[in-house]
Design a protein around this nucleic acid. Sequence first.
DNA 1: AACATATGCAATTTATATATTACATTATAT
DNA 2: ATATAATGTAATATATAAATTGCATATGTT
Lengths: 64, 64
Amino acid sequence: MKNNVKITRMKLSITQEQLANRVGATRQTIGLIEKGQYNPSLHLCVSIAKELGKTLDELFWEVE
Amino acid sequence: MKNNVKITRMKLSITQEQLANRVGATRQTIGLIEKGQYNPSLHLCVSIAKELGKTLDELFWEVE
DNA sequence: AACATATGCAATTTATATATTACATTATAT
DNA sequence: ATATAATGTAATATATAAATTGCATATGTT
């Protein structure tokens, strides 16, 4: 489940923990999503996208 | 969790069961997603989008 | 009318996302 | 070199997505 979360987060210079706090998740969950070996819920994907200033497609659609 | 799955599926004149079979889910799961009171997994959302010829954004991004 | 097809809905079970806690590793700064 | 922050990772617990089964309610068809 490859995505653009990690690269987008790093461009914004925020940590996994900061992102996690802002979307109401844990650092571990963010880490697993970034690794791409996870199947997150739509709601969490939307929260992450909004927090990173991107859309679902930009982060999760046909990456790679 | 409002979305455009139902209207898109109906335009294609396919049933919930047909869509369910094509994405490897059950009719009940599709029904609940269409009702919008569900938080489906990203993987299932992607499968549905591809099967309906739409992107994630078109089906699930800022609907309503 | 009767019958078939599609959808709604509810109870229970199963699979898995997510939280929690903890410790290890890597990077970054002092 | 040694702190400190950031990330990786693993075990267990909890919440919930999704499957399964079943029956009800439509909606259309003959």
